[in-house]
């Protein structure tokens, strides 16, 4: 039996000089997860991924992959892991195909057919013969993903794979990640500094800030945890208040703040609320669904800049 937990970190910590980049981080990634690893810039995402992929050694704690300790059983632990850390760099004087051929060799060898296959998956079919130095950043990012998938690993670790991609490219990558998990039964560990991006694909997630774990769990549960609410703005305020009071059964409650209303409610009922407000003669200027996790993450990100 292969273990249910594919990737586990135990109190993983990394200190650079006198600063902890990652501190006591314990993560659990389950088989089949698309695990979102969320944190603002400098939170320690890449540092964590470097430790998971054995590029740097933890100051404290350890990494376990497929039940193998990374330090003592490195090759076994990494045998079914593909990944990309930070910006995608390649042997720029070699062609994309040649790069993939060499990388494949390091993973036990791959066939030419497979190389062309992964190039196709990331939309680089026509450019395989070109030297990587002629690639744009987005193309290298795609090649980075191709490289991570090359040996058909069970666990794919992607460090901000959509950074530098155009909106279409971002969407394609998201679809690819979903495809990998659903159709190919892969486990994906995905870092990002955008909650929205994680929400679109991940089923489980962890938030990290200043190197420390803030929260970890099911994406849905976390998003709902602190409740969700709709910000209502419009004129006149008295009429809004009246409508909100009248619909007590549907709305879980509301608070007035800076001239707008935070209404706790199911997002499915937003059109209904809108209707009621308009009928009551309110000129609605905004109806914004918000979640407290979003606010919470935003506050982390905002504070980040000040520290």
């Amino acid at each position: 039996m292969t273990p249910h937990v594919i990737l586990r970190t135990h109190n993983l910590s990394k200190k650079y000089k006198d600063r902890w980049a990652v501190r006591n981080l314990s993560l659990e990634v389950h088989r089949g997860d698309i695990f979102g690893f969320l944190g603002p810039n400098g939170a320690g995402k890449s540092t964590t991924i470097r430790m998971i992929l054995s590029l740097i050694r933890p100051t404290e704690g350890r990494v376990e992959l497929f039940g193998y300790d990374l330090k003592s059983h490195r090759s076994k632990a990494l045998s079914s892991v593909g990944g990309i850390v930070e910006k995608p760099d390649f042997y720029s004087y070699l062609s994309a195909v040649r790069n993939l051929d060499l990388i494949g060799s390091l993973n036990g060898g791959v066939e030419k057919k497979r190389i062309l296959e992964v190039l196709d998956v990331v939309g680089l079919s026509g450019r395989g013969g070109d030297k990587v130095k002629t690639f744009s950043h987005g193309m290298k990012q795609r090649l980075g993903i191709a490289q991570a998938l090359l040996s058909d690993p069970e666990l794919v670790v992607l460090d901000e794979p959509t950074s530098g991609l155009d909106p279409q490219g971002m969407k394609e990558v998201r679809q690819l990640i979903l495809h990998l998990a659903k159709e190919q039964k892969k486990t994906v560990f995905l870092s990002s500094h955008l909650l929205n991006e994680i929400e679109l694909v991940a089923n489980r997630m962890a938030i990290i800030n200043k190197g420390e774990l803030v929260v970890q769990g099911e994406v849905k549960a976390l998003l709902d945890e602190g409740g969700r609410y709709v910000v209502v703005e419009g004129e006149p305020k008295a009429k809004i208040k009246a409508v909100l009071k009248k619909n007590k059964k549907l709305l879980e409650g509301f608070t007035e703040r800076d001239g707008s209303f935070d209404v706790k409610m199911d997002f499915d009922d937003v059109p209904m609320l809108n209707n009621a407000l308009v009928k009551a003669g309110v000129r609605v200027t905004a109806l914004v669904p918000r979640r407290s996790l979003e606010d919470f993450f935003l506050s982390i990100t905002e504070n980040q800049g000040k520290v």
Binding site: R74, D89, F90, Y91, I103, L106, Q147
Partner: peptide
């Protein structure tokens, strides 16, 4: 300098 250690040293090879 090429950043390719990140490509090379994440493989299941010592």
């Amino acid at each position: 300098t090429g950043g390719t250690y990140r490509l090379l040293l994440i493989r299941p090879v010592s």
